[in-house]
Design a protein around this nucleic acid. Structure first.
Lengths: 336, 336
DNA sequence: CGACGACAATGAACCGTTTCCACGTTCATT
DNA sequence: AATGAACGTGGAAACGGTTCATTGTCGTCG
């Protein structure tokens, strides 16, 4: 069965290949009637244009690349999934790559994608990603972990964190602990700022515990657990009545730490997470968390690439608001 | 800057384009000396061949598609990540798609990939995937959820489950409960068979509880929790002393159920999971689980596609052994 | 010593589209 | 009625590689 090409369609429809091509690309200058007829033939023959030939001539591959540090991280997994959806809505497909947080691998992958002539790259940079050779060949949009010099899209981590902390404040908490992410990471730093923003307002009016309220940790479960342990292992009137964490995994680890110390949640300790990964609604009790608008991020990233505003690199990044998802790990504080 | 093409390389090297092409493709009939010289020019010019043009003529895209039901599932996420690695080792990239377990979407995606002329498709079929039109156009290998008529690669779920149950038997357990996956799913059925295989040996020698030991459930956390609750909510001498589950998420849910019932783990209840997802080592206590050889699966799937053995479809599937990962959720049973 | 085969390398045809230019109509304008 | 702009369509070049038939060189064998 010789595969059917555009010429077959043209011949059968009694038109030129150019016209068929114009029909395929929804070019306006084709009679509606003729357009319909050609469409009919196309369907009849089961013709599908060859993407290679297409891309070779038109320089459009309908392919976008996405590079993330680690697909095992639920947040990134969901980001990729949402991106695939968003891309599909535009007739695009995605090539997924993992950098394992290694700058070298990342640069290599960007090169691969570039030579594949993808129409754009969505990049979640590795943490040791030092601004690399400006890859002007293909538009890049940086997601989540913003970088100067690149157009970026991210959740508003700072205000998101503030949102979470203010929620705790409104419940009546004053000694609010914070488990930070690694501060060499931009989002972690922003969340810390948000925490400080919110706490600033009470700092003056009410004197707070002298013991530390902030602990830096990696984003993972185990780090959250030990940081939680660090913050909670003191006399009751010294320890925080609530802890705001920088990731859901930290929060879950922190819940474990509290549990091991015999501190009931939410009765004696409120916990708020960050991210809103699926797992967060599966804990017991369900985690109160600040949810990142992952789908919006993905949609915006794809849109940014497709409208490929040129030289948008110096623009300020686009931020999307987070929203609070109330679970069962928060309540008003008990009196000391 | 006009982009450099194969003709530029040829001209500068003083050879024909054909020769350059042969150098690019490691064709044997080129003098070693000449090959080196051309390679030098290529590097000097920073030339990279255009994949579209390449693929158009040669019908090879160096692209493989992978369709999975849900990237949010950690098992699939890891599978995709491993596949990306394996593919990269062969100079291939992967296009990732999600079917959301919908057969219609799946068929649509297969069509997309086919018309993109990928060199192969790795498919984890949706559960309601009814054998579709034999897509002879591009080789497909089915992973994890085997299907008759397609060449398949999977973990040996049956023996894996038996392994887990036999471990519990060896510890001395006799009333071993089983949380099954949805039995319309092939792997779930296989795991159930493995459980039965192992239990068969003791069935005759020791009389077992009259109360049910098997509960069917979805693979997720919440289902595992309620199934665990179902199996455990009885008098102590009636309820199982160990539970083998069909997924780590079920196992974690089951741990939660046990905890809520005041049953200590592993003192009064041993639990073994299945899959070996990263989360399994982050629970407290760490989960004992039957680990699937995900990397091997991915590598084998990619290899199968690239060697594209024709008409391998009727072959029996290739199975890879699971291995037991001992955690802290198992111990010898207490006397009743 | 001539012929034949093996092997390197050449050059042009080819892959299947898109795009550009030219051409013939139609329609509004003067 | 003549002019010209606007429009729809046809035809062919172009995209950037790969491949194949062909040519040119040697070394070897009869």
């Amino acid at each position: 069965m010789p595969k059917v090409g555009i010429r077959d369609v043209a011949k059968l429809a009694g038109v030129s290949t150019g016209t068929v091509s114009r029909v395929l690309n929804d070019h306006p200058s084709v009679t509606t009637e003729l357009r319909e007829r050609v469409r009919g033939i196309i369907k009849e023959l089961g013709y599908t244009p060859d993407p290679s030939a297409r891309s070779m001539r038109s320089k459009v591959s309908r392919l976008i690349g996405i590079i993330i540090p680690d697909l095992t991280n639920p947040f990134f997994a969901e980001l990729v999934q949402s991106t695939e959806q968003a891309a599909a809505n535009h007739g695009y497909n995605i090539i997924v790559m993992t950098s394992f947080d290694q700058a070298a691998k990342e640069v290599n992958r960007i090169g691969q994608l570039t030579s594949r002539k993808v129409d754009g790259i969505i990049l979640v940079p590795s943490n040791d990603f030092h601004t690399i050779t400006p890859p002007k060949a293909v538009p890049i949009v940086v997601v989540d972990r913003l970088m100067p010099g690149y157009s970026g899209i991210a959740a508003d981590h700072r205000n998101g964190a503030r949102l979470g902390v203010e929620y705790l404040l409104k419940l009546g908490h004053r000694r609010i602990g914070f488990i930070s992410g690694p501060t060499h990471s931009v989002p972690a730093k922003d969340r810390l700022r948000g925490y400080l923003d919110a706490m600033e307002h009470i700092e003056s009016s009410q004197k707070i515990a002298s013991a530390p309220l902030i602990a830096e940790a990696a984003f993972d479960y185990e780090s959250g657990r030990s940081a939680g342990n660090y913050l909670l292992a003191r006399a009751r009137n010294e320890r925080p009545t609530a802890i705001f964490t920088s990731s859901d995994q930290q929060a879950i680890g922190c819940m474990r730490a509290a549990h091991d110390l015999g501190i009931p949640i939410p009765a004696a300790l409120s916990i708020v997470g960050f991210d809103g990964i699926p797992l967060s609604s599966m804990t017991t009790p369900r985690l109160t968390t600040v949810k990142q608008p992952i789908q919006k991020l993905a949609a915006a990233a794809v849109a940014a690439l497709l409208n490929k505003q040129p030289a948008r690199s110096t623009d300020s990044p686009v931020l999307f608001a987070c929203e609070l998802s109330e679970g069962e790990t928060t309540s008003a504080p008990q009196p000391d």
